[in-house]
Design a protein around this nucleic acid. Structure first.
Lengths: 171, 171
DNA sequence: CACACAGTTCAATAAGAAATGAAATCCCGG
DNA sequence: CCGGGATTTCATTTCTTATTGAACTGTGTG
């Protein structure tokens, strides 16, 4: 919830396969991705890839992080889906190798475009429907409620107009 | 997860105590607050207060939303904690009455200050510790990893410097 | 001062989300 | 076109988080 600011320091030293730098990075990205509502395993994967000096295979991730095959596969899928991780070709190697994409801006903007914008649009449609439903309200309430809906519209417009600015700031 | 963009249309018509406008508002704010990692009940409460033409008591909320006493109390507590809802004095009434605070900017900035900023600071500390731990790395890796840590620092600085701008945009 | 009503807290439970792992699918090399 | 490793998928399990409801606290009134 909102009050849980300083959570999860420990992380119980899985198989002590992780050095201090890796641990810090992993914890950091667990926190960061949680802020976006993404599961822990995704933070772990990205964190490890972020500090890894060479590309890692799914197998590496599974073993060093003690996560399952499925979690590794799905986590990578999600991370690739918004460009936070990419597969690099490793000569003569069968397995895929993955690296963290360091261009924060790329996936921040994916996030804005795929998560925030659709919600604003959806909310806009709701506002329309609310407006339409105003008719069925007793006179006394209608005025007040109409004002609220307009307030809501103002927020949404503002949000809409801020998105491009935010995208520009990131780029 | 990230792919769940268009969730939760229905909302199973609890006791049909809610009109269409209220339903829309509630669903909208459930979505919105979920984006910030807050539970459904909080979205419900805020949504109902938002479109209510008069202040509501905890009792009103419990009955119209079919939520428990505890949920109403805690939800209101959280909402008040970041200024999204306030108690208004109702003359001669014993119970507290609550209204939605329509100043989005106020609680957006609370969110930035209480959620985002601390995380950036915490992350900064981690970066320091990572830097310190670099010494223990084999030469080959040290260079690469140092570069990553610096990249990280750049992100954090950028975030830090964007916060005041964001706050100004909202105000 | 005690009763009744309003509100808070918190342990127990229910609901929901993420992780697991086995089965299915996809390739690449022979 | 077969065999086998790599990856994906998804039903089940595990874990986390929200919700409930009952006990507790606080408070104003007769």
């Amino acid at each position: 919830m909102l009050s849980d600011s300083q959570t999860s320091q420990p992380l119980p030293a899985k198989g002590s396969k992780l050095g201090p730098i890796e641990m810090e990075a992993i914890e950091m990205f667990i926190n960061f991705f949680r802020l976006l509502g993404l599961p822990k395993s995704i933070g772990e994967i990205y964190g490890l890839l972020f500090v890894s000096p060479r590309p890692l295979t799914m197998d590496d991730l599974m073993h060093r992080l003690n996560i399952s095959l499925g979690a590794a596969s799905q986590g990578l899928k999600t991370l690739r889906s918004f460009g936070a991780v990419k597969a690099v070709y490793s000569p003569g190697e069968r397995r895929d190798h993955f690296v963290a994409d360091l261009e924060l801006s790329r996936f921040a903007s994916t996030f804005l475009k795929e998560q925030i914008l659709p919600r604003i649009e959806q909310a806009g449609q709701r506002a329309e429907r609310m407006e339409a439903a105003l008719a069925s309200l007793p006179d006394a309430e209608r005025q007040v409620t109409r004002a609220r809906i307009n307030e809501l519209r103002r927020w949404l417009d503002r949000g809409r107009s801020m998105l491009p600015v935010a995208l520009k700031l990131l780029a």
